[in-house]
Design a binder for these strands. Structure first.
Lengths: 175, 175
DNA sequence: CTGCCTGCAAAGGATTTGCACTCAT
DNA sequence: ATGAGTGCAAATCCTTTGCAGGCAG
């Protein structure tokens, strides 16, 4: 009805969703709308925050649906999530919806996410103020190289945020 | 009574604890014992797992006490924890008990932990099997440098684990 | 002794799930 | 119409907290 909202990314995501065989519902549209808006303003929302905003946008959508939707959209490869150290998991649109999710490897440990090599961007989080910022994707290149050599470990640079202190907090509180 | 258990690290930790003005109780000893044993076998235990083993070792110790103990021991600088992406937080003994905790900066965001520059070791976690391994501490040196230059971000390399796939899983399941 | 630490139980917050119903296709 | 998706509520999981009693120092 109102695909006027204006974000080409949301539209693309909806198409990708439909292509994945998933249905396009108001709840899903609202979730995508909210995440897209946050992406635009460089915010990184947790499931709870998304649920909150979705409710504001579409009061009938239940919290549980948001959780289920986030999972569904992630499985469909439309969304991607990043684990923040110590706090929640945040979601954002995948840059190239074209990148379909692989058959989710069940991952015995419960950490599975079907995005072996998601090429999203890198995140760093301030442990003082909690702010999450994006970082140049090549920052971990060297680390990845070393880990591969030393341990044969294949580093996934986009799936977890690095912790530290942002410029503001490091300057202020930090010593 | 039985400090015979045999781990010099536990003994050292207990001393450091006492030096911190904290009391040495059976519950705390059991917690330290459990963590030390895990450290020895390169395991990384979550609060829940620790609680489980402590109960096995000292049935009277309550789960809540373990949580409180972990917090107390961390504040005392005897323990250190690492946030694993997506799953729990794991604890281990601090290498140099000498390194006392700073006055815990309350950290508005709830991520605070009073260990600005803990110089523990680096952890990497396999997102497939969940295994956590230690990595050379200098792996993130370059990344830290770049982040500081690019964003003025002060990277804390020891507080969160890096995600990826361990050699076993990368070779097997991985592509 | 005295107050820190503990056990117990109940509260909390976040995420999941069973079930019947609705709506996108 | 038909079953994927949804709303609701209850169930889990993990962690924290209030309180009264117990033990370390």
């Amino acid at each position: 009805m109102d695909r006027s909202a204006g974000s080409p990314r949301v539209t693309a995501a909806l198409e990708a969703l439909r292509a994945s065989g998933e249905r396009v519902t108001p709840a899903r549209q609202a979730v995508l709308r909210v995440i897209d808006a946050a992406d635009g303003s460089d915010e990184h929302l947790s499931a709870e925050q998304i649920s909150e905003r979705v409710t504001r946008l579409e009061p009938s959508v239940h919290r549980a649906t948001v959780y289920r939707t986030l999972t569904a959209l992630t499985d469909a490869g439309v969304l991607s999530h990043v684990h923040l150290g110590g706090s929640a998991t945040v979601y954002h649109l995948v840059a190239h919806p074209r990148e379909r999710a692989r058959e989710a490897s069940p991952a015995a440990y419960g950490l599975g996410d079907g995005h072996p090599h998601a090429h999203g961007h890198l995140h760093v989080q301030c442990s003082i103020c909690g702010r999450v910022q994006d970082a140049p994707p090549d920052v971990l290149d060297e680390a990845g190289r070393q880990l591969r050599e030393a341990l044969g470990f294949d580093l996934d640079t986009t799936h977890a945020a690095l912790l530290g202190r942002c410029s503001d907090c490091a300057g202020a509180a930090g010593r």
